[in-house]
Design a protein around this nucleic acid. Structure first.
Length: 454
RNA sequence: GUGGCUGUAGCUCACCAGGUAGAGCACCGGAUUGUGACUCCGGAGGUAGCGGGUUCAAGACCCGUCAGCCACCCCA
């Protein structure tokens, strides 16, 4: 028989993994709700015309295409086939799997603009697909948890999302992270001053690599694309210095010749942040942060763990013209996306999942013979009516096997029924971690189970 | 798309100038016919990813292929 497997970059989630994933989702979702976001869902597939032209060249290649139904080759002429994949593709595939949640959201907003009250705050927790080569922290199917505010350009949005990010990670007991922010306008101003107007993307990509390859190699790359190396060199000097953030901004303003909206918004952002009391912000300005998605136009964010080596676990930014690409102009939006799968990996490595819950029932009823099993049906009904997750062992097999089952599933309590228990209407409630047994009537057992955490 | 590493029991891995496979854990049974974890005894389980080549002989060497992992690119 063929060896069973699942497609590259996809995964099964077992009992514990699923339980923990739901734990993360619950924390994120409750924070989204706390900040006034409402849920929406969009289809797995979108028309390719919706997805293309939004993610940049690199991203576009990673879109999974869905073959047309039926005999998809029927209408293909041999000259189409003989050209190249780019010519053939639109003729055999008109749908693709969603690549992120932001673009489908923008499509949704434009389609439903007359039913939406702006500003619209929506959250969306769904899987996305990328035909990437899988490796550490990178999957072909993964979940994003997005929160976006659309229909306002208030700088309060930027602040709110910053607060939300802090709250989400706080509720997951995770503190070893750093939020990096930058502004696309600033990057564009720097590129312009360096004589790289029109070459902003390669400029950003090089700048982004400063941590990995160092100043000299970045300058080398700038030289290759014919940027003004002296100017970029001064940027890098300022960027990598450890001076105060507002001072950095001032120096950069001086260097780029004039101020622009990007600098103003950054200054204003930090000013408002200072007004907010009792917060321990983990924010730093990073002028080398670029981010790949091409639709961002304003402030951009990225959250990176400081101790676990993995890519970013959360990212986002402001986009002023995404709905414009679908025909609705003048609507600005801003969003963040939490990467569920990477957050899972980080929490696992940091040992931050609560030990108490594993998805198993709280109590298992075991029995010595078929008569006791029948008696158990009454008990399990009562226990379940009290809302306690519980199970009745289904087969009348050796009691050791039943106990072993409870042990392996880490079920914290076991009740055993035999003829004595039936006649006395008192049952032994065994605590599986301490090994101690209390013999009690069912009502008291229920009370004990209700009050005791496992 | 580029480069590197790995592929032997369900899992983690050994062995061996190339001479047709072994351990631990897990699993099943028993010691223990009304009580799990620990211990002891026993058992089952592999045409060594697949295909080809070298050889009297290949899981070991060579080539190809597939799969997984890691790095780059890019990204959640």
């Amino acid at each position: 028989m063929e060896k069973l497997s699942i497609p590259k970059g996809t995964r099964d989630f077992g009992q514990i993994e699923s339980f923990r994933r739901k734990y993360i989702i619950e924390k994120i979702q409750s924070n989204f709700i706390k900040y006034g976001f409402a849920p929406i869902e969009t289809p797995t597939m979108e028309h390719l015309s919706v997805l293309t032209g939004k993610y940049g060249d690199e991203g576009e290649q990673l879109i999974f295409k869905v073959l047309n139904s039926g005999d998809y080759l029927k209408k293909i002429k041999s000259e189409d086939y003989n050209k190249d994949a780019k010519t053939l593709l639109p003729k055999i595939a008109e749908k693709g799997l969603r690549y992120d949640l932001t673009v489908p959201f923008a499509r949704h907003v434009v389609m439903n603009q007359h039913n939406i009250t702006f500003p619209f705050k929506r959250y969306q927790i769904q899987p996305v697909w990328r035909a990437d080569r899988p490796q550490r922290g990178r999957y072909r199917e993964f979940y994003q948890c997005d929160a976006d505010i659309i229909g306002t350009r208030s700088e309060w949005n930027e602040i709110e999302l910053t607060l939300l990010m802090h709250d989400v990670f706080k509720s997951l007991n995770f503190s070893d992270f750093e939020i990096k922010i930058n502004h696309r306008e600033v990057l564009f101003a720097m590129a312009a001053a360096a004589g790289l107007k029109g070459k902003e993307i390669p400029f950003c990509t090089s700048l982004d690599k400063i941590d990995k390859i160092g100043i000299e190699k970045v300058l080398h790359e700038i030289n290759l694309i014919k940027g003004k190396v002296e100017i970029v060199s001064k940027y890098l000097e300022i960027i990598t210095s450890s001076v105060d953030q507002s001072l950095k901004i001032k120096e950069l303003v001086a260097l780029t010749g004039s101020s622009n909206k990007g600098f103003e918004e950054l200054i204003s952002f930090f000013k408002i942040l200072d007004e907010i009391p009792d917060r321990n912000f983990k924010i730093s300005l990073d002028f080398s942060l670029a981010r790949g998605l091409s639709y961002y136009t304003g402030m951009i964010y990225e959250v990176k763990p400081t101790k676990v080596k993995i890519g970013s676990i959360c990212g986002g930014g402001r986009y002023d013209n995404l709905t414009g690409m679908f025909g609705l102009k003048g609507i600005s939006g801003i969003g963040i996306s939490f990467g569920l799968d990477r957050i899972y990996d980080v929490l696992t490595e940091s040992n931050l999942f609560p030990k108490t819950s594993n998805g198993s029932p709280k109590v298992l009823i075991t029995h010595l013979d078929p008569t006791a099993f029948i008696h158990g049906i009454n008990l399990i009904e009562k226990i379940r009516r009290a809302g306690i997750p519980s199970d009745l062992f289904p087969d009348s097999i050796k009691i050791q096997k039943q106990m072993n089952y409870a042990n392996k599933l880490a079920i914290p309590y076991v009740i055993t029924i035999g003829s004595d228990e039936i006649s006395k209407a008192r049952y032994p409630l065994k605590n599986m971690s301490s090994g101690k047994t209390l013999t009690l009537p069912i009502e008291e057992i229920i009370e004990t189970l209700k009050t005791n955490q496992r």
